Computed example of a mutant assay.
Amino acid sequence: MSDPKLQEKIIDALKTVQDPDLHKDIVSLGFVKNLNMEGGNVKFDVELTTPACPVKEQLRTECETKVKAIDGVVQVEVNMTAVVRSTEHAQPILTGVKNIIAVASGKGGVGKSTVSTNLAIALSLTGARVGLMDADIYGPSIPQMMGIPISSPKVGSENKFFPHEKYGLKVVSAAFLTKQGQPLMLRGPMLGGIIQQFLQNVEWGELDYLIIDLPPGTGDVQLTLTQKAPISGAVVVTTPQEISLIDADKGVKMFQ
């Protein structure tokens, strides 16, 4: 049977556990769910805002330690879960995608696509549902990095096409629109049309994160994306050289 006094002590103990990033206790944040007590055995969930939380194990250990210290508690089981929150935007595009993260650079050759790929895979390994869009139209490299053969995507209803899937990621690339080794030669205005297709005509499904690998610079693709897509955040990749940092600073200002 549930002991109201013991439950109150457990809640009070958990109120002393703070999220180091949000600077509030996990009870006030609403993270504590499904508290269950049977005799001296206590079970509850801690529901975080992202499966990629870097302090997840720290919070688990602190919860276990503080609840175990309460008289009458014999065993503690803490189940760490996560529900990714959606970034609120007025734009209705990509309704099934909770967060869009753009990866950009001022110059080419600084490792932007490598960062995009590893960021997407790292998020997927935490249990998040992740998509990876290769929007570097003139120099798409994501398929090669992911080990995906160049082939046309499958087309479904309403002429929407399905992403390729690899390592738990849904992947779309401009490379899939051409034959192996064939360059994609387009004028500036046509680039925006391809990006809109990637945003509106792809069956992304339900995603926690969509990582978009942008081309270097601040051109047509970047303009279309920042105007049409509800971006949650951006990563600007650079190397330590001053000439690269100057252009990276321009990339940062583009998202401000």
Rank of each mutant, 00 (worst) to 15 (best):
V155Q: 11
I148V: 13
P163C: 07
K179P: 00
P20D: 04
G192C: 03
L177F: 14
M133H: 01
A82S: 14
E203D: 05
I211D: 09
S2M: 14
P189A: 15
S86G: 04
G251M: 02
L191W: 07
V46D: 00
W204N: 14
A248V: 08
K107Y: 12
L48V: 03
V55P: 00
I101G: 06
V78Q: 03
P4K: 02
I194M: 13
T224K: 05
I150L: 15
Y167V: 00
S113T: 07
K5P: 01
C53L: 13
G193H: 02
E62M: 10
Q256W: 10
G109A: 10
E158M: 15
E64S: 05
N79Q: 14
F31P: 06
N159R: 15
K68Y: 05
I212Y: 14
K33T: 05
G40L: 14
L186C: 04
E8H: 13
D12W: 00
V67R: 04
L35I: 12
Q75V: 06
E242Y: 07
P230Q: 05
G111L: 07
P140V: 06
S116H: 04
P4W: 03
V155G: 06
V32C: 08
G156R: 13
E77W: 09
N36H: 15
R60Q: 08
V236W: 03
L6D: 13
F31V: 10
G251H: 03
S105G: 02
I211N: 06
L22K: 07
G139H: 03
L225M: 11
M145S: 09
D19E: 12
S2Y: 10
G181W: 10
L186F: 07
N118I: 00
A69Q: 14
A248C: 08
K15G: 09
N34G: 12
E62G: 08
G156Q: 13
G127P: 05
L22C: 05
T178N: 06
L207S: 11
M1I: 09
Q241V: 01
L94F: 02
P230I: 12
A135V: 02
L186V: 04
L123C: 02
E158T: 13
D220R: 12
E47F: 06
L214P: 00
Q222E: 09
A174G: 03
L223M: 15
A175T: 03
E206W: 00
S141P: 03
I246S: 04
V17Q: 08
M254V: 09
V235P: 04
E8V: 07
A82K: 11
P149L: 06
G156E: 06
P216K: 13
K56H: 09
I121N: 04
A13E: 08
A102M: 13
L22N: 10
Y167Q: 14
E64Q: 14
Y209K: 08
S152G: 00
G205Y: 09
S28V: 04
T238D: 07
G109L: 11
I137H: 11
V73T: 05
H164T: 03
S232T: 12
L169R: 09
G219Y: 06
D45K: 11
Q241D: 00
K24V: 01
G106K: 01
T218K: 01
V202C: 03
A82I: 03
W204K: 12
V76D: 12
S244F: 14
I137C: 07
A102K: 13
Q180R: 06
E8N: 15
G181A: 11
G156F: 02
V110N: 11
G188L: 15
S113C: 02
T239H: 06
V171G: 02
S157D: 14
